[in-house]
Amino acid sequence: MSYKKFENTYLNYLSQHKWLVWVMILTVVLIWGYAWTLMKEALQYMGPFTFSAFRFGTGTLAMFIIIGLLGATKLPKESTKHLVVVGILQTSIVFLLVMYGLKFVEAGKSSVLLYSMPIWSTLLAVIFLKEKTKTNKVVGLLIGLIGLFTILGWDIWVNQTPGVILGELLIVLSAISWGASNVYYRKKLSHLSQLQVNAYQMLFGTLGIILVAVLIEGGEPIHITPYSIYIILFTGVLASAFCFTAWFFLLSIIDMATATISTLLVPVFGLFFGWLLLDEPITWSITIGSFLILFGIFVTTIKKRKST
Rank of each mutant, 00 (worst) to 15 (best):
I65Y: 03
S116V: 11
V94Q: 05
T58E: 12
E106N: 14
T58K: 09
H82C: 02
A62S: 14
R55Q: 05
G87W: 02
K137G: 08
M117H: 07
I66A: 13
L102F: 10
L114N: 00
H82I: 11
I93D: 04
V112Q: 07
G87D: 03
N136L: 15
K77C: 12
V112F: 14
R55P: 00
V94G: 05
F128Y: 14
T135S: 13
K137R: 15
L123F: 15
I93E: 01
E106L: 06
E78K: 15
T122R: 01
F128A: 13
G68A: 12
F64A: 09
L124M: 15
L83C: 02
S52F: 05
E131I: 07
M117I: 07
G108I: 09
K103Q: 15
I67L: 05
M63P: 02
E78R: 15
L114G: 00
A107F: 05
F128D: 12
G71L: 13
L70H: 05
L89D: 00
P76G: 11
V84S: 09
I88T: 11
F95N: 00
L123K: 06
A72Q: 10
K74P: 04
F95K: 05
T135G: 08
T58M: 14
I93Y: 04
K81H: 12
V112A: 10
V98C: 10
F95A: 04
L75I: 15
S52A: 14
S110I: 09
L61C: 08
G71C: 13
K134F: 08
T50R: 04
T50V: 13
L96W: 01
F51N: 00
F54T: 02
S116D: 05
K109N: 05
L113T: 00
I119T: 10
F64K: 00
K109L: 12
F64E: 04
L113N: 01
G101F: 08
Y115G: 01
I93S: 00
K134G: 08
